[in-house]
Design a protein around this nucleic acid. Structure first.
Lengths: 349, 349
DNA sequence: GTGAAAGCGCTAACAG
DNA sequence: CTGTTAGCGCTTTCAC
């Protein structure tokens, strides 16, 4: 039993034919090259016997196709993105693509360097939830025709295919805040993240529009801008201030899941009861929101759906099925739970 | 401005030197090949100018190294594994490795086929949280010297490097159950998963030992075996039965996070209050356990640590730094929270 | 109908 | 000291 690299050449030598024949037979290629049934059988039998496995690297080098797609998000361990990753994996797997993933940590430089890496590795296409700070680079990919799909975060002037909430950001936020107001919360703090991302701005618009439509005025000091370093303490500090007499709030509306979880922890640690001390609603649903006490009201958009659609759009780009660049909007659904409804019902619609 | 593939050959032609020179210069190789400073400068300048990017595929084909590691877990969207994936990504990234991931869904066939895929793709090494049903395949990899590290789930007779809880499974469960008993829970249901995995069995042993040490007898009908199809309903059905008069339980101990989340949902839906109706403790901590009401007692082992250590062991395998096969045990830490402590304190240590 | 040869882009072993 | 050539393993175009 000797150790030997099993390659096409090895099989070819043993059978006294050329590598080309083997390749054609094993790949079932119906080219302009015919092989006798007899030879065919021998080849298949020997390949099987030797447990031949083609070297994807060599194949990819030759064909220019790697059957790999690159997925980049801010943090793969974020529950939203991990669900998304899974859905991308499954959707891509159906077409024999594999996924290589990277977390950008919302860092524009890291993002740029990872995109370069993806390209060096010749991934067939990229799915990106970006920092919004590499517009030139994205534009470049776009111009070169490098298959790319943006998710969640679009650029204002880009033609790149996109899957995400789009105007549903605003509408979702609007629905949530309106719901809070209708349930008699009148001083609603807004928690958002720095640096600004477009979805955040849209959501903020929805918040403001809801206030306006209900004849409440927007108060800038109720808007808390949290930077991603030390989220917990930053939220805690700002919330504590808002709870001081003179600046009381009666509810909190949070614009994404990372901030929301930190905020819930803060409220817990401050001993605040939801919803009676403070109403609560946030963007992005979570597997525990449905049985947390109280259950948490959230605006959901399905990461599974975003991932699946992103892969579809990407395949379309890669295989040039259609030349149309699509912006795909997924709906934002308000899931009303107990965190946004006072138990002592003074007033409620 | 014409479109052209920028390869070593292209640069070489323009400069009238061979590709080898370019390669050596750009990679800063200190081989037995000297290049004049002048030529060097020209090469670097032109490469920079053309924005040359090496083709990783070609390089890998030549060198046999892909700087890719394959990560396979049961489900990347499980919060434990997503944290682990992130940690693997970071640790691997430090050494310029990238990660390609796959979810096996606890399916042995899928696992086997994905391992084959990893190999065809020439990943430099594999990190695997396996189904425990492919021992032969694992043994084969081991024999061939294919770099592999097992996480969480080891094979009984394997010499493959491993990172996980090991005997801490039993010890962790023991601590948790003992803690429940000391807090006056006496009829503790055990929720475990089918098919059996070694960590599950170890944990069950810990449960039994705790009972024994506290002079409680193990009652087989308190052990609920849940199969992974339809977890929620399966748990619900069995729990409801256990709550019937004659078979009352006063606490639940759950052996992993997937079961635990489903179980908490069931208890919520059945209107059961924790800890007063039922005490609760489980394996695997969760980002929301610390502010859930009540906060959930859990046995934690850090996925970040497992991931980091796994990469270290894998690098050791890949680069043959040391020939020692290591079994690395990470500690199980019992995090006591309110779900396991009755509010009406009848008796407590 | 069948098979050899070229070449994807790179690097490491050789030669001048 | 400075370079060129061979070849990794595969597919596909071309000549027989």
């Amino acid at each position: 039993m000797e150790k030997k690299k099993i390659s096409l050449k090895y099989i070819a030598d043993r059978l006294n034919v050329s590598t080309a024949v083997i390749s054609v037979v094993l790949n079932n290629r119906v080219g302009n090259i015919r092989v006798s049934e007899e030879v065919k059988k021998k080849i298949i039998a020997l390949a099987d016997d030797l447990n031949y496995r083609p070297n994807s690297l060599a194949r990819s080098l030759k064909t220019g196709k790697t059957y790999t797609i690159g997925l980049m998000v801010s943090d793969i361990s974020n529950h939203y993105y991990s669900k998304l990753a899974r859905s991308v994996e499954d959707a891509a797997g159906k077409y024999n693509y594999n996924v290589i993933f990277c977390s950008s940590d919302e860092n524009a430089e890291k993002e740029a360097s990872l995109i370069r890496l993806f390209r060096n590795r010749k991934v067939d296409g990229i799915i990106l939830s970006g920092t919004q700070q590499n517009e030139n680079l994205i534009q470049l990919l776009e111009n070169e025709g490098y298959p790319l799909v943006l998710i969640d975060r679009d650029y204002a002037r880009s033609r790149t295919p996109f899957v995400g909430l789009g105007n549903q950001n605003k509408y979702g936020a609007y629905k949530a805040v309106r719901h809070l107001i209708k349930n008699n919360f009148k001083k609603i703090a807004l928690i958002t993240a720095l640096p600004y991302l477009r979805p955040m701005s849209f959501r903020e618009e929805g918040y403001k529009k809801a206030l306006g439509d209900c004849n409440l005025s927007f108060s800038p000091n109720l808007k808390l801008e949290i930077s991603y370093s030390d989220v917990y303490n930053s939220i805690k500090y700002k919330i504590e201030n808002l709870l001081n007499p003179g600046a009381e709030i009666d509810a909190i509306f949070v614009l994404n899941n990372k901030l929301a979880l930190n905020c819930l922890q803060v409220l817990h640690d401050l001993g605040k009861a939801i919803p009676d001390d403070l109403g609560f609603a946030c963007f992005d649903d979570h597997e525990m929101f449905s049985f947390n006490k109280p259950e948490i009201t959230a605006i959901n958009h399905s990461p599974a759906e975003v991932g699946k659609k992103a892969v579809e759009l990407l395949l379309n780009e890669m295989e040039q099925i259609s030349k149309t660049k699509i912006k795909e909007i997924v709906p934002a659904e308000l899931i009303i739970r107990k965190s946004s409804i006072k138990t002592k019902k003074e007033f409620q619609i």
